[in-house]
Each structure stands twice: as C-alpha cells, then as structure tokens.
Design a protein around this nucleic acid. Structure first.
Length: 566
RNA sequence: UGGCGAGUGGCCUAACUGGCAAGGCACCUGACUCUGGAUCAGGGGAUUGAAGGUUCGAGUCCUUCCUCGCCAGCCA
C-alpha cells in the first residue's frame, strides 16, 4: 500500500485487535480465516472488502486464508461463477495455496452429524409444509408453536431422514429441523431448518444428493472442519451467531471457530446486491457481468482499474460495525493514486479542432521526443510525429477568452507539449459561424518546448498530427445510477439507471502509438482521464473512465456560463 | 410491539484501563509545474444522536429517551 495513507493494519480495526489479542494470549497457535462466497454470481467491490480483510489478516499475522465455496443451494449456483470467483480473487492479488474447499466436500460428514443430532434428540424430521412451518414460527413479538412432529421418536426421524436422502420424497415434503426453542426471542433459534429436499443438479456433486444442508448447518461446521479460528462475516449474520454456537457446542466438531461480524460496504451511485446485479444483467440494463458500468471485479479489471487501487481503497475505508455509505469519490481517489504513478501519458484529442501552422514547411515531418511519464524518468520517452497540420482539443481555444483562461486565443502564444510555441493569428469559420480551423505561426527556436530567451507560455496543450493521427472510438462511462443512493425513498431502483452511463464518441484522434496499446494497459490522457483498450470492441475502442476524469475546471466555467462550448 | 447491533464535521474511520476530539476523502486558498492535472503548503467545517447523573475532568462510566439497521426463506 503505497498511497501514504494510514492503513487499517497500522490503525488496527476491531477485528485485527481481536486477532492480535487472541494470538498474544495464546488462544490460538495461528490465525486461520476464510473467504466463503456462494457461487451464485460474480464478485464485486463489496466482496473485495471482505477478501482484503480475510486474506489481509492471514498475511499480516502469518496465518492462512482459505477460499471456500458455500455451495449448499444448487438452485442458484453455477460453474461459471466458481471459475470467475477464483480468477477475481487471484487478480486482486491473493493466494489460497492448497486451501481451496467446497462446503459440498463435507456433505457426507454433515449428514453424519445430522444423524447424531437426531439420535441425541436434538433434531427431528418435520412433515409440515413450508407454509405451515411459517405459521408455527410465530412473529417477532409472539412466540411460535411446536410442530406436532417435534416429539416423534428419534428412530422414526432417523428412518425418515435416511429415506429423504434416498430420494423417496418430493421437494418440500419434509425437512430436518433442530430442536431448540420455539419461544426464543431470536427467530433463528425457533427450530431452524437444517436440511431440505432439493432434487436439483449440483455443479459439483451432480445428482449424488437430493437433500442439502442449509447455510446454518453447513457454515459453522465447515469452519470447524477447516480449523478456522476467526469466521468473519457481515452484520446481517449476527442474529445467526447463537445458532452457529449452538451447533458447534452440540456436535463433535474438531475445532471451535468463533464468528465476528463487520459492516458490509455500500457505495454511492452503486448497487452491491447480487440479486440486483443479476437483474441488471438478465434484463439487459448492461451487457454482462463484466460490463464496464458494473461494480464487479471483472468489470473494474476490464476498465483498467489496478488491483492495487482496490486494495488501497479497502485499507482506506477501514472495518467497523456501523452501517456506512462510502462516497464513490474515495474509490476513485485510491485508483487514481495508483494509476497516476503507473499509467503512461499519451496524446489524444476527443473533440478535434484543426490547427494549421502557416510558417511550417508543407510536407515536413519531424519526430519530437515526449516523456512517457513526467513523474518517472525511468519510463523514458517516445517519438511523436509533428507536422504542419495538427489537431488540438476544441476546448483548448477560446475566441474571446474569459478571465483566467490561459490556453489558446487569438494573438496568444502557447506551448504544444514537447514541440513548439505557436501563436494564433487567424480564426476560420464556416457559414454557420462555427470555428473550423485556426491559422497559427510557430517559433522554430522553441523546438522541444523551450525558448532560448526563456519566455514561458502560460499554457501547454496536447496535440496530434493530422497526417498521423489514428481515428478511435472512445466510450465514456459514467455512474450507472443517477442518484447517490439508488433505490432510496422507495424509488424503483431500475428507474434510476442512468441512460447516459455509456456514451460512444466517434472520430476521436489519438497518437499513432496508441494503435498498438495492449489490452489491459491503462494510459492517462492528461487533463482528460484514463483509458484502456476494450477487448470486446472492434475496432479496439478505448474505455474512457469518465468517473476518473481529472478535475475539470472548465466544467465549472461552463456551469457559470463563462465558457460556452458551442 | 420481541431480540440483536449501531449512532463521532458532507462521507469513511481514530481516540490504550475516563485526560486538549485525530486522520483520510470531499471542499476552499496559495505556491509550483512542459497542461490549470499531479505535487507541495495552508484553510474552513464537530456543543461526539438527546437529556440527566457520577467525576477535578466523560466520545469513553451510569440512567432514561430518540433515530437507524438486521431478523418472521425449506436463500446465503
């Protein structure tokens, strides 16, 4: 983490404090954590917080972190997700080594433990329907009622449970329930369901099983099997902790993991609910899980966001138990911090305006050396062709400059980056009054960008030679949701999807070297933003990360009506 | 209305067993620069949800209240 910000390690969030204390006081020989996604979708930036926490703790305290798929519901899970999740965790920079596990690996063990629970009179097969079970459960304020099957003999439950496994009953016919307390103020303790019948193809176990453990029956026991010391999850599972502990206490598990909860990440202008992301994909609001507007890790990667920036962000926001909504700007700051050090600078003109240098010889071409990264001399420089006719950014010229506009204007001299000083001597317009061309002169003495007499223009512009420019399609991405808090105030969340979240700009002109820019490499177009080639577009389009646009003074001037962009 | 959890500048977080409320993001100003970006240097902004109480002293302890989140899937 090199942004110079205080990391959560230095600060020690409350979970790290707990781990440190447990280690210090000898409660564990080493720390073992786990990241336990259900393979029912792609990983997003919210998961990154959890990944960085779990793998980060393991790394910092010399322990290990497992990657375990919580694949207990075959109705929602797919191999595609199993694959993408592994790729995304690796991309983020973490390694689980040998420790790749699946809850489904433990199905046989979990089944045996369920049988033991029945034998001990602590679980029973219930014949009630889902609807009846719900009615017996009571409400938040009223206690539930015992199922009529609650006290059936263990032998009977044992027999029924075995037949459930054998596929004798249809989905929903019976369930296995823990016998705890139907009057508990914690609804999770009112005889929770441990197993249900699901005749479904499982991505790993195929049709070997037709009964599946619920999250509650699988998770803690899986933790125990793997000797997880600190089982870290999000706040909504707090209510499950008593059940987690009850199962651990009542089963002959090989270790005693403990659960800790932290607040999940929320981001402005973003939705991090897998259910909603799945709908965005399925209903065509975006083109897929890796659509550049998605908050998924695969989308961020495709947009050219560095994993280090994501990690820095995770360290920056910390870990606590209070609900939070982090401003998306904080994420952008973290990413920009990394990109700014790493991304090579390139010339590109998004909205071209022609400049003709009248005193520059026709047909002459010279190459000027432009530094790749002014902050990193080791990045070297590249040759860029310069000629009599150039494109500059239309925004970089004002016929009647407002106060504090230092760029090109009639009669004014500016520097073309790494090339020459030019002075605008004439403005050419078409019949409608639109500026079509600028006639300028250059000072041959200023080659390379410095004047022998030491004079310094107040502005420096980027440019592209007309004869050498490569035409490109540039896609601008903005926030997927218009409002900072999509779905707030009871608004239908999909009504808030920003129709301008993707804008395709044709006819952008970029310097020749960009034609060979490798996919995945992000460059900075100074004062414009960061770009990277999009593998899914042809011809190769550049993804313009609108949300990472450098601070734009002119947006302000425009807003004030002082810089009217025709 | 039951249980659990949480309230610290606009946002995210700190503050060891009570001792001048700290940092980052954002914002504003200035300096500098071959981009007005970046960088650097400053700045504004908090009666720590509220009211009582204990104490020389409370964000930290006690009491009461308020607000928000989660839980009534055979989802995770």
């Amino acid at each position: 983490m090199s942004t110079g910000t205080t990391t959560s390690l230095e600060r020690g969030d409350f979970i790290r404090e707990i781990v440190a204390a447990d280690l210090r006081e000898g409660r564990h020989e080493g720390v073992v954590t786990r990241f336990p996604p259900e393979p029912n979708g792609y990983l997003h930036i919210g998961h990154a917080k959890s990944i960085c926490l779990n793998f980060g703790i393991a790394r910092e305290f010399g322990g290990r972190c497992h990657l375990r798929f919580d694949d207990t519901n075959p109705m929602k899970e797919e191999q595609e997700y199993i694959d993408s999740i592994q790729a995304d965790v690796r991309w983020l920079g973490f390694d689980w080594g040998e420790h790749l596990y699946f809850a489904s690996d433990y199905f046989e063990q979990l089944y045996e433990w369920a049988v033991e629970l029945i034998r001990a009179g602590k679980a029973y097969v219930d014949d009630l329907s889902a609807d009846e079970i719900r009615r017996h459960r009571g409400t938040l304020t009223e206690p539930g009622e015992n199922s009529p099957w609650r006290d059936r003999p263990a032998e009977e439950s044992l027999d029924l449970f075995a037949r459930m496994r054998d596929g004798e009953f249809p989905d929903g016919a019976r369930v296995l329930r823990a016998k705890i307390d139907m009057a508990s103020p914690n609804i999770n303790l009112r005889d929770p369901v441990l197993y249900r019948i699901l005749h479904a193809e499982h991505p790993r176990t195929g049709d070997a099983w037709c009964i599946y453990p619920t999250y509650d029956f699988a998770h803690g026991q899986s933790d125990a099997i793997e000797h997880i010391t600190h089982s870290i999850c999000t706040l909504e599972f707090s209510n499950h902790r008593p059940l987690y502990d009850w199962l651990i206490e009542n089963l002959p598990v090989p270790s005693r993991p403990r659960q800790y909860e932290f607040a999940r990440l929320n981001l402005t202008h973003t939705v991090l609910s897998k259910r909603t992301l799945l709908r965005l994909v399925n209903e065509g609001y975006v083109r897929g899980w890796d659509d550049p507007r998605m908050p998924t890790l695969s989308a961020l990667r495709r947009r050219g966001f560095p994993a280090e920036g994501v990690r820095d962000f995770a360290a920056m926001i910390g870990v606590a138990k209070a609900d939070n909504v982090v401003e998306i700007g904080m994420f952008e700051h973290a990413v920009r911090g990394v990109l700014n050090r790493r991304a090579p600078r390139r010339f590109a003109v998004l909205d071209p305006l022609k400049v003709v240098i009248e005193n520059y010889p026709e047909g002459q071409v010279e190459e000027v050396a432009v530094p790749n990264n002014p902050e990193d001399p080791a990045a070297g420089s590249r040759p860029v062709p310069f000629s009599r006719e150039l494109w500059i950014e239309r925004d970089d010229f004002m016929e009647e400059p407002v106060r504090k506009f230092f760029r090109l204007a009639p009669g004014r001299e500016v520097r073309l980056r790494a090339a020459y000083f030019i002075t605008c001597c004439e403005v050419v317009k078409d019949a409608t009054g639109r500026i079509t061309e600028l006639r300028c002169t250059y000072d041959p003495e200023t080659r390379g960008g410095d004047a022998p007499d030491g004079r310094r223009p107040k502005a420096t512009l980027h440019w592209v030679s007309c004869a050498h420019a490569v035409s490109a399609e540039v896609r601008l991405y903005d926030y997927l949701f218009r409002s900072p808090y999509p779905g707030a105030d009871g608004r239908e969340i999909f009504a808030d999807v920003n129709p301008d979240s993707e804008v395709v700009l044709q006819g952008c002109l970029v310097e020749p070297s960009l034609a060979e820019l490798p996919v995945g490499e992000t460059v900075q177009f100074e004062r414009l933003g960061y770009f990277c080639p999009d593998p899914d577009s042809s011809p190769a389009a550049l993804v313009f990360n609108r949300t990472l646009t450098l601070k734009d003074t002119w947006a302000k001037l425009r807003a004030q009506g002082r810089h009217d962009r025709a």
